[in-house]
Design a protein around this nucleic acid. Structure first.
Lengths: 233, 233
DNA sequence: GCGCCGCATTGAAAATTTTCAATCGCGGTC
DNA sequence: GACCGCGATTGAAAATTTTCAATGCGGCGC
């Protein structure tokens, strides 16, 4: 029972050069010469919703560039509590935290249908030696991850349950290209906000009754951004 | 009414080479040649407790290596709420998040008597171009900051107030060289944990009554680490 | 020594959140 | 079409947290 499929693999990085989202990914600024230095296969992988990309404690021979879909990073506490600490979306790098060879500090689980490029860590390591362009791209990723984490603390873990849900909806909405956005399960919303599933449900349902949130087909939703921002922020 | 004093300044980085905590700081792995590339003054600065090192929104021409003491990074929400997102201690770099030239995303405030080295950003920029050793040191800083942020979310912003306070005490204790550790004001504890000052006070006072926490002179305290860990973790 | 100020503590009522259990709704199966 | 199962929703009671106000406690200046 596999919940992932390998769509394609190839030696080197021929197709990276022509990747449709190359401007968003780690390799955005590499030159053709740089690509020629890549001598290990990069796989294009699809995951079904709810698949585990890696587990907390795993050795991490790969990093993963998110091509589409959303991945949650979950951290488990010894007492069994768990908390979602970040959401990765297009262009983000799963496994960034473990580029130094440390075992994974999170569990990574897909929230919807996800496509990633699986990149051997050795590629990053060797490119890092030779090209400063990759350095900068990595630094940007660290920066984004850290400011994301800070926002998670100040916006999603502060204030009462209603504000937290509101700010989560606004965040999901901002990060979406689309007019609509992916609305997580109430359980996931709770794990992001540090509240119970039921509380997440009550607040969400409240917003729906107020007309501030409209669920759409396929786990997606729309919010009255202006009004939500006015009431919370 | 200055709440900081400049202890010493010097051109270049002569004294960096002999810095007592050099093994802990950003410049740990630089060679003598590297130091000779530093052509801007690095100041050694002291701050009184409660001094603002920089404000949210400030331009950041400097970064600051913490030599001793503790600095809190505070983020303000539009609605006036505020949250402490990180504590910096010896060897940490304040302003790391703004090395790219972005204005400060936090306010940095000293919690006790603090000594820092103020390093012009231009030095980092020029060294970064020339020495991979600095690169690695910076990456380590990013890594530490991010895993710190993740812990902040999972350990300090999850569970009931009692657990949060317990885990904060354990964290403060771990990070201290000493057998004792710096116990923040209840207001700061609240801002770290996302609870009110009064709740922080009630939990803290409770631990004191149980003998799990003993306040010492000068804002320091001791905890029964084993017992606290057993009950929480 | 006295008074003051800032912080910590405490108590009681109000508000919020969790808990626990029941029900609903919907998509898929048989 | 009936049935199942999973997630969402809802309600009511219990537990926790906040709020608001009062009091305690040290240190500091005068």
């Amino acid at each position: 029972m596999k919940n992932r499929t390998i769509e394609s693999a190839w030696r080197g990085a021929e197709r990276c050069k022509n990747c449709a989202i190359r401007h968003l990914v780690l390799f955005a600024d590499l030159t053709h010469d740089d690509f020629d230095r890549i001598h290990h296969p990069i796989d294009d992988i699809e995951f079904k919703p709810g698949s585990r990309v890696y587990l907390q404690g795993d050795e991490m021979p790969f990093v993963y560039t998110v091509r589409s879909g959303l991945i949650k990073l979950v951290q488990h506490l010894p007492n069994g509590d768990r908390r979602i600490v970040r959401i990765l979306s297009q262009g983000d790098l799963a496994g960034l935290e473990n580029l130094d060879g440390q075992p994974a500090s999170h569990e990574a689980v897909t929230m919807d249908h996800v496509r990633v490029c699986r990149i051997p860590r050795s590629i990053i390591a060797s490119l890092k030696r030779d090209t400063p362009r990759l350095h900068d791209a990595l630094l940007q990723r660290w920066q984004k991850a850290l400011s994301g984490a800070d926002n998670w603390i100040t916006r999603l873990s502060t204030g009462n349950a209603r504000s937290r849900v509101a700010r989560l909806l606004l965040l999901l909405d901002e990060n979406s290209e689309d007019d609509s956005f992916f609305l997580p399960t109430r359980e996931d919303m709770g794990a992001m906000l540090g509240i119970t599933t039921e509380s997440a449900s009550k607040m969400t349902a409240g917003f729906r009754r107020n007309g501030l949130l409209k669920p759409l087909e396929d786990h997606r939703a729309w919010i009255d951004e202006r009004e939500l921002k006015k009431q919370f922020d």
